[in-house]
């Protein structure tokens, strides 16, 4: 059976993680193509709803990548992000989705190698965890996209 290729969403903060990802590019490092990056101004901008919805829509792993402790371009964004990740992890536990599917990581703008290493490690970790149970169920039913109007 072919190997399971997890889909991983990485919310990267513009000033550190996103730049580190670009740096990994200029250094021509290699990391799995499973990781898709969404640029946000600060890791503190990632809303718990985005983390939940990513998993609900079928992502197998979600990374919130911000600046190193104390180095956040906006002072406290990364600290708030870390707290929110922990809060959402408790929600996931309640649902029975493995909390390790969601992780907070930090790096500085110059750490291209660290970004690539994290991308590799996290992809392997999620690959070992197997598909997100919600995604698997969703695939089985191929249900129409749920109607979710947020007013």
């Amino acid at each position: 059976m072919e190997t399971f290729e997890p889909v991983i969403v990485a919310f990267c903060c513009h000033y550190c993680a996103y730049t580190a990802a670009d740096m990994a590019g200029t250094m021509r490092l290699d990391y799995p193509a499973n990781v898709k990056i969404v640029r946000v101004p600060c890791s503190g901008k990632v809303d718990p709803i985005h983390m939940m919805k990513a998993l609900e829509l079928g992502a197998d792993g979600v990374l919130v990548a911000g600046c190193l402790e104390g180095d956040c371009h906006f002072k406290t964004g990364n600290v708030k992000a870390a707290r929110r990740v922990t809060y959402v992890q408790t929600q996931l536990e309640e649902i029975g989705v493995e909390p390790q599917r969601l992780a907070m990581v930090t790096m500085s703008a110059g750490m291209g190698t660290r970004f690539a290493a994290i991308a590799n490690e996290f992809t392997e970790q999620i690959r070992k965890l197997g598909p997100n149970p919600v995604a698997a169920a969703r695939k089985a039913q191929a249900a129409p996209a749920p109607v979710a109007q947020v007013n």
Partner: peptide, 14 residues
């Protein structure tokens, strides 16, 4: 929104 997402996931998982 958080609860909706959690409920959605719980149902779909089952």
């Amino acid at each position: 929104a958080m609860l909706a997402s959690a409920m959605q996931m719980d149902f779909m998982k089952r």
